[in-house]
Lab assay of single mutants.
Amino acid sequence: MIINNLKLIREKKKISQSELAALLEVSRQTINGIEKNKYNASLQLALKIAYYLNTPLEDIFQWQ
């Protein structure tokens, strides 16, 4: 199981879903879906999320 901390980290950094989506060149709905565990981010997208949030990938998506 993967624990998804994207919403928590994004909100801590005061970045909206729309802002993050624009940086990543995806839709806001994609970010929303990832945060609600409706969609799994591809490895490429997960790495981009970590880069733009300046946060280690394993802090955003944790295996349990």
Rank of each mutant, 00 (worst) to 15 (best):
M1K: 10
M1C: 15
M1G: 08
I2S: 09
I2E: 05
I2F: 12
I2M: 11
I2T: 11
I3D: 06
I3K: 13
I3S: 11
I3T: 13
N4G: 05
N4Y: 05
N5I: 06
N5K: 07
L6S: 00
L6N: 01
K7H: 07
K7E: 09
K7S: 07
K7I: 05
L8Y: 12
L8C: 15
L8A: 15
I9S: 02
I9M: 07
I9K: 01
R10P: 02
E11Y: 06
E11Q: 10
E11C: 12
E11R: 10
E11H: 07
K12G: 12
K12Q: 14
K13P: 01
K13C: 12
K13W: 06
K13Q: 13
K13D: 02
K14T: 04
K14W: 05
K14C: 13
I15F: 08
I15Q: 03
I15V: 11
I15M: 15
I15H: 03
I15D: 00
S16N: 05
S16I: 04
Q17V: 14
Q17W: 03
S18M: 12
S18P: 05
S18A: 14
S18C: 14
S18F: 10
S18D: 13
L20V: 02
L20K: 00
L20D: 00
A21I: 04
A21R: 02
A21E: 01
A22W: 05
A22G: 11
A22H: 11
A22E: 13
A22K: 13
L23Y: 14
L23Q: 11
L23C: 13
L24D: 00
L24T: 13
E25H: 15
E25Y: 08
E25N: 15
E25T: 08
E25F: 10
E25D: 14
E25L: 11
V26D: 00
V26P: 01
V26M: 04
V26H: 03
V26W: 02
V26G: 01
S27R: 08
S27C: 08
S27N: 09
S27E: 07
R28D: 11
R28A: 14
Q29S: 14
Q29F: 08
Q29M: 09
Q29I: 09
Q29Y: 10
Q29A: 14
T30D: 05
T30Y: 15
I31M: 05
I31C: 03
I31P: 00
N32H: 11
N32E: 15
G33P: 00
G33K: 13
G33E: 15
G33C: 15
I34D: 01
I34E: 01
I34V: 05
E35Y: 02
E35P: 01
E35D: 02
E35G: 01
E35T: 03
E35N: 03
K36V: 10
K36Y: 06
K36S: 15
K36A: 14
N37A: 06
N37C: 13
K38V: 11
K38Q: 14
K38W: 10
K38P: 05
K38D: 09
K38S: 09
Y39N: 07
Y39H: 11
Y39D: 06
Y39Q: 13
Y39V: 15
N40E: 11
N40V: 14
N40D: 09
N40R: 14
N40W: 08
A41T: 12
A41W: 04
A41I: 15
S42K: 05
S42Q: 05
S42G: 10
L43W: 12
L43F: 14
L43P: 12
L43G: 07
L43D: 04
L43H: 12
Q44W: 10
Q44A: 14
Q44T: 13
Q44M: 09
L45E: 03
L45Q: 06
A46C: 15
A46P: 00
L47M: 12
L47T: 13
L47N: 12
L47A: 10
L47V: 13
L47W: 09
K48H: 05
K48W: 03
K48M: 07
I49C: 07
I49E: 00
I49Q: 00
I49R: 00
I49S: 00
A50Q: 04
A50G: 04
A50F: 04
A50W: 03
A50D: 00
A50M: 03
Y51N: 08
Y51E: 10
Y51G: 06
Y51C: 13
Y52M: 10
Y52P: 00
Y52I: 15
Y52E: 06
Y52V: 15
Y52T: 11
L53R: 01
L53K: 02
L53A: 01
L53S: 04
L53H: 07
N54F: 05
N54Y: 05
N54K: 11
N54W: 05
N54P: 01
T55D: 03
T55R: 04
T55E: 10
T55G: 02
T55C: 09
P56E: 07
P56F: 03
P56A: 07
L57K: 03
L57V: 13
L57W: 04
L57G: 07
L57S: 02
L57T: 05
L57D: 04
E58T: 11
E58S: 13
D59H: 10
D59Y: 09
D59T: 08
D59M: 11
D59K: 10
I60T: 04
I60A: 02
I60L: 13
F61T: 01
F61G: 02
F61H: 00
F61K: 02
F61W: 08
Q62V: 14
Q62G: 11
Q62R: 10
Q62W: 09
Q62Y: 08
W63T: 07
Q64V: 11
Q64E: 14
Q64W: 06
